[in-house]
Design a protein around this nucleic acid. Structure first.
Length: 129
RNA sequence: UAAACAGGUCCCCUUAUCGCGCUGACAGUAUAUGUUAGUGAGGAAAGUCCGGACACCUUAGUGCAGCAUAGCGGGUAACGCCCGUCUCUUCCGCUUUAUGUGGAAGAAGGACAAGUGCAACAGAAAGCAAGUACAGGUAAUGCUGUAGUGAAAUCAGGUAAACUCUAUGCGGUGAAACGUCAUGUAUAUCAACGUUUGAGGACUGCACGUUCAAGUUGAAGGGUAGGCGGUUAGAACUUAUGGGUAACCUUAAGUCAAGAUAAAUGAUAAGGAGGUCUCUUUGAGGCCAUACAGAAUCCGGCUUAUGACCUGCUUUUUAA
RNA sequence: GGCCCCGUGGCGCAACUGAAUAGCGCAUCAGAUUUCGGCUCUGAGGGUUGGGGGUUUGAAUCCCUCCGGGGUCA
């Protein structure tokens, strides 16, 4: 259960994506960047996650697909720590900002860093409120 | 033998762990979820340069305009594609000095004997005209030949990827088409009745023409976001047979081969095959683990990007 | 998924009804002027007209094809 990434957990709604770009908060660990937004309407799934690579940096569709797959894979293997330690629902969107083709290890390392940062940051914001 | 050239195939394989889309079966009230089985990118999926299928739009009429094609014949659902052939151009060879003949490659290859335009420099002159040198000739004259200029010279001159003419073809919009469900509300949609003016809109750019449109009654709805259908069995592929120079076609048998939608087809590890480089052969070690590249309604072509392997009887070229 | 437009020195533009030296302004460089610099004046360099092919005697211009950039449609 823990390391699956089914269709339901994918971020699909166009309006939600628009909202996330407009109002979402970001954490980055180059070349990755995470934009996230708390969903206030109650949804069944805890986290909806999307992945994107800009066409400006990678013209070839094959390379874009490859990077997106790497991002998804690394998220899938590491999402457990978030699922077990967080309250509420969130929408995630990962961006790849680099201009070179990455190796998998590189992507996974940065993914872990980002998720750690996220875990630290979110509870702090709640206490401030 | 190698390369050019032509044709064909698609690229890593096995195991383990984890994972994704679709379909079937089973469990389940269930389109939730789980288990299990099957299946899951290309020759170009690309560029969008042509041609269709399919769908809808007031059946899309007439004239003008516009666009496309262009020897001849065949193939095809159709084409600007393919095949054959004629002619022309270029190159090579042979014979011979005047052409003939053989081979290869290429060609948007109708008409300048309808009209209009254009032609730098050179040249007398590129056409409402004018006329050099030499020779010949005449009653006389650019009247005739040669020279000279130039891509082209009173020759029915050159040029149409100049306007144009001829022949043939072309209604428009594209899966964000279109159908349907749910959501539910603005005068904007639909149906019936009515139809003076003809503003304005629509039907292809324009004109003609056609048609809609103020009102009443009834039904129903706009925007936004979304589900399902369209959506994958087809001008399909493979093999054999017969026809045809060929493209291709006839007949028979067999096969079923992705349907995603912020968009699935992946990640890691080990071993093996392979390629390449280095060292001393056996062998060892390093690197790569492949090129170009990712379906988005579907077909037929064209163009472009590309690595490896396999085949080639005969024919052509190059090197040994 | 479809449609449309544009590529000319470093930058911004001309020349797009084919004609041989592809022009203009700014910028650059050199000289003059000035004690030095600026302004000003004079001169010079810098272009495979995005790449390739075709038509033509001749192509920035006409045609085909590829590359790059931009816009637009629910």
């Amino acid at each position: 259960m823990s390391s699956k990434f089914p269709k339901k957990e994918k971020l699909k709604s166009e309006s939600l994506i628009r909202e996330i770009f407009k109002e979402g908060k970001s954490i980055s660990s180059y070349p990755l960047k995470l934009i996230y937004l708390e969903i206030k309407v109650p949804v069944k799934t805890k986290i909806q996650c999307g992945v994107t690579v800009p066409k400006r940096n990678f013209k070839s569709a094959v390379k874009r697909n490859r990077i997106k797959r790497l991002l998804r894979e690394s998220y899938r293997l590491n999402k457990e720590q978030i699922f077990n330690n967080i309250e509420g629902s969130f929408a995630f969107l990962f961006l790849y900002l680099g201009k070179e083709m990455p190796q998998y290890e590189e992507v996974e390392m940065n993914m872990r860093v980002i998720l750690q940062k996220f875990l630290k940051k979110v509870p702090d914001e709640k206490t401030i409120k």
